[in-house]
Design a protein around this nucleic acid. Sequence first.
DNA 1: GTATCTCATGCAATCGTTTGCATTAAATAT
DNA 2: ATATTTAATGCAAACGATTGCATGAGATAC
Lengths: 339, 339
Amino acid sequence: MAITIRDVAALAGVSPSTVSRTCKNNPSISEETKERVRAAMATLGYEPNFQASNLASQNSRTIGLILPVSERFIYANSFFLEMIQGINSYCNVHQYTTTLITGQTEEEVLQVIRSMVRTGQTDSFILLYSKQKDPITDYLYSEGLLFAMIGKAYQFANQTIYVDTDNILAGQEATEYLYQLGHRRIGYIGYEKALLFSSDRKYGYQLAHFEHGLPMQEDYSLEINDSMKKMPPELSDLLKRPDRPTAFVVTDDFLGVSLERTCRECGLTVPEDLSIISFNNSLFAQMTSPPLTSIDINSMQLGAEAATQIIHHMENPNLASTKIIVPHKIVMRESCRQI
Amino acid sequence: MAITIRDVAALAGVSPSTVSRTCKNNPSISEETKERVRAAMATLGYEPNFQASNLASQNSRTIGLILPVSERFIYANSFFLEMIQGINSYCNVHQYTTTLITGQTEEEVLQVIRSMVRTGQTDSFILLYSKQKDPITDYLYSEGLLFAMIGKAYQFANQTIYVDTDNILAGQEATEYLYQLGHRRIGYIGYEKALLFSSDRKYGYQLAHFEHGLPMQEDYSLEINDSMKKMPPELSDLLKRPDRPTAFVVTDDFLGVSLERTCRECGLTVPEDLSIISFNNSLFAQMTSPPLTSIDINSMQLGAEAATQIIHHMENPNLASTKIIVPHKIVMRESCRQI
DNA sequence: GTATCTCATGCAATCGTTTGCATTAAATAT
DNA sequence: ATATTTAATGCAAACGATTGCATGAGATAC
């Protein structure tokens, strides 16, 4: 059996309550006794029992990390693991733990969340994605659970804690970058509108056009959905037109790589015939050829901020819901050229 | 406050102990009362408090998942998330939870593990990698902690629960596949020997050569280490030689993509000038061009088996340590050709 | 009809903390 | 010197389960 608070109390010659208060650094314990207790803790190597402590204080120092239910390929974006790294690095220091919530279906995920709440296993969550009309998000809202979202809140923004990239700005900057290189026919490839990071980036792309008085060609912009394994035929058609775009803004590296491949199949070379700028700056961007210019969204920091926020809110209830924007930056590689 | 065992007991007209025993399906409770209790649980929506239950029964139904400390790129392999999916799918059903252990340094990870054990937060682990001379593995062994390893045990194999791919066989089959296509000069690219999956695959590669009486050229095989950002210059040199390999076995898709890129830089095309077969069948393999023939190692199942094993061992102490081999299969794409 | 044995259930202690309240001693006020 | 406040600590009751042991009611044996 591990050593308990009573062992420490006995060694220090105080009562268990004094030990407990010392751990919490309660001001009503004198500095001398605290020192004595700390010494005892140190010699015994005491750490309070997690379960007992949580039971007595009616909380769980555990944050549930909710991953999206989705096709394989969403997962391939390494930023989930990076965000988790960021979250954990903060939690490790502050004595919180994280528990991963995944499932093959939304129903399974909901099931797990419900059970975790009922059993008191977790009392707050970080949603690692944001998506419109998501039953899981709806559930969190409707139950009034405490959670932070990585991504943009699409409803109740004022009552939601969220950490996000300024995707509109990022989309605008990406487009602006191409514009500065002389491109005037610029296309966009993204995901379904429900994925806010993607629609925001597209909105930024449109803003940039508007700002420069550039006409927007509706058919320059494509939407890929979750179930498509590859680029749709419209893209090849578009690339074969004489008035094809000379550059593309693409909502993630994954699509960037896909686009490069499509180009190759259509006999176009990057960046000579087509420039590409994408987002996330994942390994994909570095590895492919030519390596992609990509906007780094700082996944680790996104995670760390989310952890900071949620812990802050757990420890200070009825704090106003904050919104945090993590800066991004463009990482230039070889997929864009001056025209 | 959530509903407790007493509420259920009151409604069913029994004592709390009876409710508890009903949950555990204890045979000494009659079927009729069990039914009555179950009905009460259902109407109240009762689920036992996780912390209280664990405290009383002196366990934690929590498995710590230990991720490798490593350079970004190891993470990019989506199989970590896939393994986690597999682990969770089993845990979800069996009322276990998983907690993620990550850190920027080995010291941080050790710290977290130590603390989790001391505080009784976790009593078993799944190590999501295997590596020689790993301080974390050593710690788990030395403390006699219960853990399962995904990958091959490099010591105490008989006392270790592990789940692995038969990497030797996989390496052999990959090489054999190229041999059958007519290749006779086959190279190998892998990681440092400490990473057993890589050295096993290489061993399989050597076995295949031996079997066919093919000479092994020492300089056909390259070792990439964790910190290299790209392929070493030796590779380009090798590719320019007249007696260069006509095919490569490459230890993961990541390196496969790198190799494709190097080829392009050297003016070689895949598969016309060089065939490539790699491992893991990650998204990389599908996305790159040409898409890579790759050996799928079934990451989800690896995870699920590991979870099964560790839970089985927790519930049946002093069971012998099992070793599980999960089958792999080759997925043919466009990176290999008949010679 | 009493003794013995099952079977099903309840009692109460326990797991290791936390925390409101009581207690004591010392310090200050009168 | 007594009354009152303050500071530091301990007592004991939670928190919500689990589980060894006792108990009581039937069933079986003699």
